[in-house]
Design a protein around this nucleic acid. Structure first.
Length: 223
DNA sequence: GCGACAG
DNA sequence: ATCTTGTCGC
C-alpha cells in the first residue's frame, strides 16, 4: 500500500466533509452504532452495525459483516482498514439510521478524516466520532466531575470535545464525522447515554460484535 | 533525531 | 484490535 497516495486521498476527501448539521430540522428516529473487530488472527475484519430507536434507545436491528482484512492497522489510516467491512454491514441494514455513532475519531484526525468522516462521506449519512483515546490535538484533562468538558484543539481550531461521560472513567473524545456540527455531536452523544461510559449505540454494537450476554439475552427474546 | 500514535 | 483471572474500589 502506498501511504503517500492514501494521504493524498484523505486530504481530498476531507474537503468534502460537511461540518454543518443536516438533522436540525428533523430529529433522528433511528440512531445507529458501529464497531469493528477482527478474527482469525486479524485475517478477517468483522463490522457490527446496530440500529436503536430514539429516544427509547431500544435495540431494533443489528447486522454483522465479515470480509478479508484489506490493510494492517496504521495510526492515521484506520478508515481504509475498517470502512470496507462497515459498508458491507451497512448494505445489509433493512432501515438506515438517520445518525450513526462510530467507534473512533471524526475530524479530530491529523488530516481531518477519521473513520467517522470517511464512512459518513461514503454513505452520505450523518456521523459522529466517539473515541476512547486521543489521536491528535491538545487538551486539558476534564475535572473528575462527571459531565466535565474540555475542548480538543490544534493550532487554535477546535477539533472536538473531551468529555467525562461517567465518574471514575476516562473521558471520551467526541468529534464531527459528517453533516453534524461539533455542538450537535456532543449533544447527541449526551442524548444517547444510559449510565455507562459509552453511549448506547456504541455499547450495543460492541455487545453484538463480541456476543456479550446482554446481546445474547436480547437475541433469545427477539428471535 | 525523538516521542506519539483511533482500532 | 486481541490474548485473558483475578482483583481493587465504589
Amino acid at each position: 500500500m502506498d501511504l503517500a497516495a492514501l494521504r493524498a486521498q484523505q486530504q481530498a476527501l476531507a474537503h468534502l466533509v460537511v461540518t454543518e448539521d443536516r438533522l436540525i430540522a428533523d430529529p433522528p428516529r433511528w440512531v445507529g452504532g458501529a464497531d469493528v473487530g477482527f478474527e482469525d488472527e486479524g485475517r478477517i475484519t468483522r463490522a457490527a452495525l446496530v440500529v436503536l430507536a430514539w429516544p427509547s434507545l431500544a435495540l431494533m436491528e443489528y447486522q454483522i459483516a465479515r470480509i478479508p482484512t484489506v490493510m494492517p492497522y496504521i495510526p492515521g489510516f484506520l478508515s481504509f482498514r475498517e470502512t470496507p467491512a462497515l459498508q458491507a454491514a451497512w448494505q445489509q441494514l433493512s432501515r438506515k439510521p438517520d445518525l450513526l455513532l462510530v467507534d473512533g475519531h471524526g475530524r479530530s484526525h491529523p488530516r481531518r478524516l477519521g473513520v467517522a468522516c470517511h464512512f459518513g462521506l461514503l454513505e452520505d449519512v450523518p456521523t459522529i466520532g466517539v473515541a476512547k483515546k486521543r489521536l491528535c490535538g491538545q487538551f486539558q484533562l476534564p475535572s473528575e466531575a462527571p459531565g466535565a468538558l474540555a475542548p480538543l484543539t490544534d493550532k487554535d481550531q477546535q477539533l472536538g470535545w473531551v468529555w467525562r461521560s461517567k465518574a471514575r472513567c476516562n473521558p471520551l473524545f467526541i468529534s464531527t464525522g459528517h453533516r453534524v456540527s461539533l455542538d450537535t455531536a456532543l449533544s447527541w452523544v449526551q442524548r444517547c447515554m444510559a449510565g455507562y461510559r459509552l453511549p448506547e449505540p456504541t455499547r450495543w454494537a460492541d455487545a453484538v460484535a463480541s456476543r456479550k450476554p446482554a446481546f445474547l439475552r436480547w437475541q433469545e427474546i427477539h428471535e
